[in-house]
Simulated assay, not measured.
Amino acid sequence: MQILTYGDIKAAADRIAGRVRPVTVTPVDPGAIRTADRDSPDDRAEEPCQVWLALEFMQHTGSFKARGAQNFIQAHREAGTLPEVGVTIASGGNAGLACAWAAQQQGVRATVFLPANAPAVKVAKLRGYGADVRLIGSEYAEALAACEEFTNTTGALASHAYDHPLIAAGAGTLLEEIRHRIPDLDTVVVAVGGGGLFAGVATAAQHHGIRTVAVEPENCRALNAALQSGAVVDVAVESVAADSLGARRTSAMALHAARQDGVQSVLVADSEIVRARQALWDHRKVAVEHGAATALAALTSPDGHTPDGPTASDRGYRPGKGEKVCVVLCGANTDPSDLATRSESH
């Protein structure tokens, strides 16, 4: 099993400096997030919690994935292991977009495999980044098999959506930036799909003594199920956020990070994800993916609970008095038309 280290994240930060957009953080209105009724460990016991949003959806390609993709390609270039045929990936989502973008930035060829029924808008976007798009079969598994055959026959460098230390380390650079913008940060809240973003953020957070709250939809819970089972397991995927958080299994690297001190796994209902996403639009005119709204839903869910253990599983998360919390809004590749419709119906 590959274990991510803080040294990996520091190396990634140096490697991608100036190649990605620095994250912007913005405060949530005072009193907007309810505070738990528990004692604060320091002199902030009488203060309300302070919550910020990390606007990572403003990153290149519309998601945090650009960080890992840039680190992955740059690291292989530095090591002399970047083949002339370039990189390849099977993904029509954020990972595919990030891989194509990073390859274009580095002057590298990218070959992206998708099912033939992939949305035309995604295909056009990938081609806009200069990718060679191959439409294969009708299911993702067929596109993945074609991608693997392409790797074996051409020697192309295969990238992965989340299960690679260079990808996760690149994602972890986000926490490094956040902590420089929010002194004395106590907690970072992040949505979890396959676990690349979580593994990177949690590894960096643990190094700095910051709690990580890993949030998943209740019916899309690969990391939470792995923690309960004590091993990586397959789970059913059925959630409004499945397009970005719908991994059937987490990575062993993410499970290792989740078992460390200072990590809490929580679940939220789809209805709360939809409500959090709508609230971001109504109050800030910010349109994010359901996956990004999943992180915020942990704090706005009415049945949020306080942490009671390093790998506690609970419904939502309620900050303590005086607690400084940052919620990562990780992506915005979404169709905003339903937000406008809902807003007009209010």
Rank of each mutant, 00 (worst) to 15 (best):
S313I: 13
M58N: 14
L223P: 06
Q278L: 10
A257Q: 12
H160S: 12
Q50V: 00
L135V: 06
R34Q: 12
H208Y: 14
V327H: 01
S159K: 13
T311I: 09
S229P: 06
S40T: 07
G172L: 08
G7Y: 12
G200K: 01
A143G: 13
V213L: 00
R259V: 05
S159V: 15
T35S: 12
A103R: 05
G195L: 00
N333C: 01
A110I: 03
L299F: 05
I178M: 10
E78F: 09
P310Q: 15
R181S: 14
N224T: 14
D184P: 06
A54S: 09
P302H: 08
G172F: 10
R342D: 12
T35F: 04
H290V: 01
D186N: 11
D335V: 02
R277S: 10
R259D: 11
K65S: 01
R318V: 01
V237A: 10
I3W: 13
A214F: 03
A120S: 13
A75W: 08
G316T: 00
A293E: 02
A340C: 10
D37V: 08
P22K: 06
L267E: 08
F72N: 01
V213S: 00
V188Y: 04
Y129Q: 06
G130L: 04
D42Y: 09
A12H: 08
G194R: 01
T203Q: 02
L267V: 11
L175H: 14
W52S: 04
G291A: 03
A276L: 02
G7D: 15
I73L: 05
A17L: 11
A332N: 05
A332F: 02
A79Q: 10
A257K: 04
G230W: 06
A11R: 13
F113K: 03
H60T: 05
G18R: 04
N224H: 14
D163Y: 13
V133K: 07
G246P: 06
G93M: 03
G80V: 04
G316K: 00
D29R: 12
A298C: 07
A17F: 12
A103Y: 09
A90E: 03
C326A: 11
Q206Y: 10
W52K: 00
V20Y: 07
A279C: 06
R315G: 11
L175R: 08
T154F: 09
L339C: 02
A168W: 09
D186K: 00
L157Q: 11
L144A: 13
G18A: 04
T111Y: 07
P336C: 02
L157H: 12
I73T: 05
T111V: 09
A252D: 15
G320K: 00
A66I: 07
Y129C: 03
T294Y: 07
S271N: 12
P302M: 06
Q206W: 12
A236T: 14
G200Q: 01
E148W: 13
G68F: 04
H305Q: 15
G155Y: 09
A75L: 03
T81E: 11
Y6R: 07
C220E: 03
A145S: 13
T111M: 07
G31I: 02
E272R: 08
V112I: 13
L157A: 09
E344N: 13
D335Q: 03
C330E: 01
D14T: 15
A279K: 10
R181N: 11
G246C: 06
Y140H: 10
P41G: 02
